[in-house]
Design a protein around this nucleic acid. Structure first.
Length: 848
RNA sequence: GCCGGUGUGGCGGAACUGGCAGACGCGCUGGACUCAAAAUCCAGUCCGGGGCAACUCGGGUGUGGGUUCGAUUCCCUCCACCGGCACCA
């Protein structure tokens, strides 16, 4: 070989080879466009819903149309494309859709800044990004494209909302909510990350507002138990969701208030420690506080309570603060011991978890211990550590939080913790003083947003009828386009008279329209259903279409949505199931969490200034090189480090493939590739075997392990062998057949990764019809089988020699052969083997 | 603090079920081609020692231990980094 590999982006040189073949310039730019057009004309990627084929629904997270695609998108969509294309060739009916998560604040902020309309800004971005994705050659079924900012999409957000409203799963609540000042809107708990806004990182403050919520907590238990069906999710994502849902088993117990008819209810996960409850603490925000402080000390306590409440609201979500409390002077009865215990108000008890009140068991809870030490409250041991001698009547000097054996607990003394919790729960239930129960950390999903560019919440407020849902026939409630976006406080919709003023659908009287819009995570919670029947006009999606396609067979996307989108979507799917629209309970049984794209050690970001723009790379190298590199440099679920040198290496590899095919172009003149013409025992046998081993490896790496990087390296290995063995092989007919078969296999195996180059070489090798329409290569296990096995010989575990043998040679023969090796004898140095371990086709280890 | 993940050459990474550590690529070194450079091609490249040499000896997968004939792989300890949760009773 010795082909001239010119820079394909320089003008085509009139260059001829002196050997046998005309060198054609490898013009990526030209043939990438050519094949993109050919696929489009052939509708090669439109899902057929052909019942004779097995279906495969492959989904990648749809992008927010921010303006341009970034490397994270390139990676996500390149990974998906390899799998989609391989599945298509393997005979599946593949649904591989794309759309736009097109509502949201950036559009509105851009509009305020640049005086454009969010709609124009968004649609402009969509148009640009669509051409970028097409330039990447991703195998999307563009006929199913959805765009959430169009009324034809968000109409169905409203429809679903109304169904949830009818079932009480959407409700209005006046509560403290997370407020982000720069974004001028409320945020859901999931959207507060480390105390700050998930978008702009500004610390959120608490505001009391009446808001719309979706009752995700109704599904808390199922969201957790559903994990059993998610065996193909990464462990850490399940763990994150588990933490987020925060299920705790325990008991609710009533402590009667002394001198009153009411009780204070607490939640505990350690009912076994209740006899050690020497005080009660209520959150400073607890409604009972007003009653507790009423009386002579009110003037003393009220200012402290007010200060503490203000402090707690400001500090919410920012870690531990010093414990501070006040004794109310009031007492409650411990229902298990009958003792009177003091009631304290403190800053360390959260109002929105459990009941907002706890029993203080200082001997067995570190926080209560700290509090009791500070304020001199009695501490009593009720759980003995295993094997501890006792007695347990004095005050302990440290906390013991593990389970143990009950002491000082009346009739329950002597029981182990687990058993005591059961018995004491039953006791509480029979006496009517409490019940065993489960509590969750998960909160209902606040979906109201005080911004313009979102789905209008379809309700009106009528003085006579109250909250009234907009009737289905009046959907969509369209977002008015004639609004003034000024960036002032309050929703622009509030100031839009024509929008706000409405007639009550019930009584016809004057009514006011809801001006909040929906969280955009509502849109993405069901978009994968819409893809199944994207132009459906009677329902959000056709149930039969959903039945055909759902669940999504493989979902690919970044892990940053582990407890946002991925938990909301699971909730929506269950809610839609309960509405009778689908039968699936889990939308994504298989989730592949793609790793981050980094450069110089940190994630690509504007603030770090380490962004590489895919457009630049596409212009310089083309789509195939970019795709290949981003898939080759690391496995999909790991971090990916950008490197221009590595990219260059992939580019060179593709030129070598181009050269290898052109250098042997004469072999393809004789008709189709026929592996039978290659002789498994003849001159091309090594290459033939390597070819079939490579087909096997690439097939498995793509479809079983998703190790796309090793799939690519195995094709590289095959290319290296082709190059090395080319000249002698061309001497014989069998050799030429093996060479041709290997080259054709390289083209076909590369097609999911570098589809344009593969199509181009397929055509140049004389094949007719699209490579995409041809079948995925099958491997012949007989041809892939090694004809010899290498047996390594160790002496005392150290490698000393190796030899070749026929596969399946019995262990006894291997032992004899190994002992006969001179190097082995030398290593033994006359010592007599004590033991010999032989493993068929693998090794002999001689222990002396 | 609790939970989860990761740790392998100069770099990205490979080794699938406990059996040849470092595939493939980058980078680097030397050579060919060239007036020269680039590109391309060929050869080498875990570390250390010995040999003119085909070679040979020793060490080596974050640390320390364990199980095993044999450990990157299984178990325990510790360390580092990344991520989640965090006064959740």
């Amino acid at each position: 070989m010795g082909l001239d590999l010119r820079d394909p982006l320089s003008p085509a040189p009139a260059y001829s080879r002196t050997i046998t073949i005309m060198a054609e310039t490898c013009d990526f730019a030209a043939f990438e466009r050519k094949w993109q057009r050919a696929w489009e004309e052939a509708k090669a990627f439109e899902a057929s819903e052909d019942p004779s084929k097995p279906k495969f629904y492959l989904l990648e997270m749809y992008p927010y149309p921010s303006g341009r695609i970034h490397m994270g998108h390139v990676r996500n969509y390149s990974i998906g494309d390899v799998i989609a294309r391989q599945k298509i060739m393997a005979g599946f009916d593949v649904l591989h859709p794309i759309g736009w998560d097109a509502l949201g604040m950036p559009a509105e902020n851009a509009a305020i800044k640049h005086g454009t309309h969010p709609r124009d800004w968004t649609l402009g971005n969509v148009a640009h990004m669509r051409t970028q994705l097409k330039r990447m050659g991703i195998s999307y079924d563009w006929s199913r494209e959805v765009n959430t900012c169009l009324p034809e999409y968000y109409k169905w957000n409203q429809w679903i909302f109304l169904r949830l409203l009818e079932r009480g799963l959407a409700f209005r609540k006046d509560s403290w909510v997370n407020w982000c000042s720069p974004c001028r809107t409320v945020l859901a708990n999931e959207q507060v990350v480390g105390g700050g806004c998930w978008r702009c990182e500004t610390p959120v403050i608490q505001k009391k507002m009446e808001q719309w919520f979706l009752k995700i907590t109704d599904y808390a238990d199922e969201l957790l138990t559903g994990h059993a069906a998610l065996a193909k999710w990464p462990e850490h994502v399940l763990q994150m969701q588990k933490n987020w849902i925060g299920r705790s088993e325990g008991a609710h117990v009533h402590f009667p208030l002394e001198g009153a008819s009411r009780t204070i209810e607490v939640f505990t996960t350690r009912l076994d420690t209740i006899c050690g409850a020497t005080f009660l603490v209520v959150s400073a925000e607890h409604p009972v506080v007003a009653e507790l402080i009423a009386g002579p000390r009110e003037n003393e306590l009220r200012p402290w309570v007010e200060r503490t409440v203000a402090e707690m609201r400001r500090r919410r979500d920012v870690g531990e603060t010093e414990k501070d409390g006040r004794d109310t002077g009031r007492k409650a009865v411990n229902p298990f011991t009958g003792e009177l215990v003091p009631i304290w108000i403190a800053n360390y008890v959260l109002m929105d978890y459990g009941t907002g009140a706890i029993m203080g068991v200082p001997a067995h809870d570190a926080r209560d211990f700290e509090f009791a030490k500070t304020y001199g409250i009695a501490i009593r041991t009720v759980i003995a550590p295993p094997g501890a001698p006792g007695p347990f009547d004095g005050e302990p000097t440290e906390v013991f939080e593990d389970p143990g054996t009950l002491v000082n607990s009346g009739p329950f003394s002597g029981l182990p913790s687990a058993e005591a919790m059961d018995k004491m729960g039953l006791h509480a239930e029979s006496k009517g003083i409490g019940r065993r129960s489960t509590t969750f950390r998960l909160r209902d999903w606040g979906i109201s947003r005080q911004r313009y560019w979102g789905t209008p919440i379809p309700v009106v407020y009528c003085d006579a009828c109250g909250i009234v849902g907009v009737p289905d026939r009046d959907l969509p409630v369209e977002l008015p386009l004639d609004v003034k976006l000024t960036g002032e406080e309050g929703s622009p919709l509030e100031r839009h008279e024509g929008f706000v003023r409405a007639a009550c659908p019930k009584c016809g009287g004057p009514a006011r329209r809801e001006t909040d819009t929906m969280d955009t995570f509502v849109d993405s919670s069901w978009y994968f259903f819409r893809y199944c029947s994207p132009r459906e006009e009677a329902l959000p999606f056709r149930p039969e279409a959903a039945r055909h396609w759902l669940p999504v067979d493989l979902y690919i996307g970044g892990v940053e949505h582990a407890i946002l989108h991925l938990i909301y979507s699971r909730f929506f799917t269950k809610a839609l199931r309960d509405l009778g629209l689908t039968e699936v309970s889990e939308p994504f049984p298989h989730y592949l969490a793609q790793g981050m794209v980094t450069k110089d050690g940190s994630a690509m970001s504007k603030s770090k200034g380490n962004i590489v723009d895919p457009d630049e790379i596409l212009t310089k190298y083309g789509a195939d090189t970019l795709r290949l590199f981003i898939l080759f440099a690391s496995p999909p679920d790991r971090e990916f480090a950008w490197s221009e040198d590595g990219l260059e290496g992939c580019y060179r590899f593709l030129l070598r493939v181009w050269a290898a095919v052109h250098d042997n172009l004469d072999l393809f003149a004789g008709g189709p590739d026929d592996p039978a013409a290659a002789d498994p025992a003849g001159p091309g046998s090594r290459l033939l075997r390597k070819t079939h081993q490579t087909i096997r490896k690439v097939t498995e790496d793509i479809s079983v392990r998703f190790h796309l990087n090793t799939a690519i390296s195995s094709v590289m290995e095959l290319c290296n062998m082709i190059k090395k063995e080319r000249d002698p092989l061309r001497e014989t007919a069998a050799g030429r057949a093996a060479l041709r078969h290997a080259l054709v296999s390289v083209i076909r195996l590369l097609s999911p990764f570098t589809p344009h180059l593969a199509e181009e070489l397929w055509e140049r090798a004389g094949r007719t019809g699209l490579l995409m329409r041809s079948a995925w290569p099958a491997f012949d296990p007989a041809l892939a089988r090694e004809e010899t096995a290498t047996v390594v010989v160790q002496v005392n575990g150290k490698l000393r020699d190796k030899f070749e043998t026929a596969p399946g040679t019995p262990e006894a023969e291997l032992e004899t052969a190994a002992l006969a090796l001179p190097k082995v004898q030398a290593a033994l140095g006359g010592k007599v083997p004590r033991k010999i371990i032989a493993v068929k086709d693998k090794l002999v280890n001689i222990v002396a």
